[in-house]
Simulated scan of single mutants.
Amino acid sequence: MNVQRVANTRIFARRLDVSHQAIAYQMEFSAAEDLAMILPIPVIPGSREDAVKFINLEDYSTFFDDLDSAFPRPKSLGRGAPAAGSIVPSETLKVQSVGSFEASFVPSSADFRRLDKRFRIEPETWNKIPDYSDYGFAVFKLKRGDHEVHPMALRFPSRHPDKLFFPTVHIHDGEVHAKEEFDHEIYCQVDRPGMFAMTKWEESPGIAKTSCKVDKSQNLLKADAHLHRRRLKGMLDNKDIILGTA
Rank of each mutant, 00 (worst) to 15 (best):
T62W: 10
V176W: 14
P74D: 11
T125P: 13
R144T: 06
R155T: 05
A197C: 08
N127L: 09
R5I: 15
P72R: 06
V18T: 10
E185L: 13
K94I: 06
E124D: 13
R118A: 09
D116Y: 04
M152N: 04
Q189W: 07
P72V: 07
A81T: 07
R10N: 08
G46N: 00
G234L: 12
L93G: 09
D17R: 01
N56D: 15
P161T: 14
G85K: 10
R155D: 07
P167I: 11
I23C: 05
L164R: 04
D34Q: 11
Y135E: 10
S90D: 02
F119C: 03
D111M: 06
G46E: 00
G194H: 15
E185T: 14
C212Y: 11
G80K: 07
K216Y: 02
E124P: 01
V98G: 02
I242E: 07
E91W: 06
V18E: 07
S19P: 04
D224F: 04
E124C: 05
D191W: 11
L232V: 06
P123S: 09
H147W: 13
P40V: 09
E28S: 10
A31P: 02
N8I: 04
A246F: 14
L39A: 00
N56V: 03
D237Y: 12
V139S: 01
H184Y: 14
Y60L: 02
H160V: 06
S47V: 02
F12Y: 14
L232C: 12
R48G: 10
K143Y: 11
A178P: 03
S108G: 13
L232A: 11
R159P: 12
L220I: 12
P40T: 10
S211C: 11
L236D: 14
A110H: 12
E58N: 05
P205R: 09
F137R: 02
D17W: 01
R5A: 13
L39F: 01
A83L: 05
E203R: 12
D237Q: 09
V149E: 00
R159E: 14
K233Y: 14
H177T: 14
I11F: 13
R113G: 09
L67R: 09
D224W: 06
I171H: 12
G46Y: 00
A81Q: 03
K143C: 08
L57H: 03
D146G: 08
F71V: 11
R10L: 08
L154C: 09
P72Y: 11
F182W: 09
N127S: 15
F196M: 04
G145C: 06
S158T: 14
A225L: 13
I186W: 02
A178S: 14
W201F: 10
A153G: 01
E180W: 14
K128P: 10
K141S: 05
E175K: 08
E49L: 00
S97V: 06
G194P: 15
E122D: 14
V88I: 08
R113P: 04
I23S: 04
R73P: 03
R192M: 06
Y135N: 13
P107G: 10
Q21P: 00
I186K: 07
I121Y: 08
N56W: 06
Y187M: 09
D68P: 00
V149N: 03
H184G: 00
M27G: 10
D240I: 12
R159H: 10
L115Y: 02
P74R: 04
K141W: 02
E102P: 01
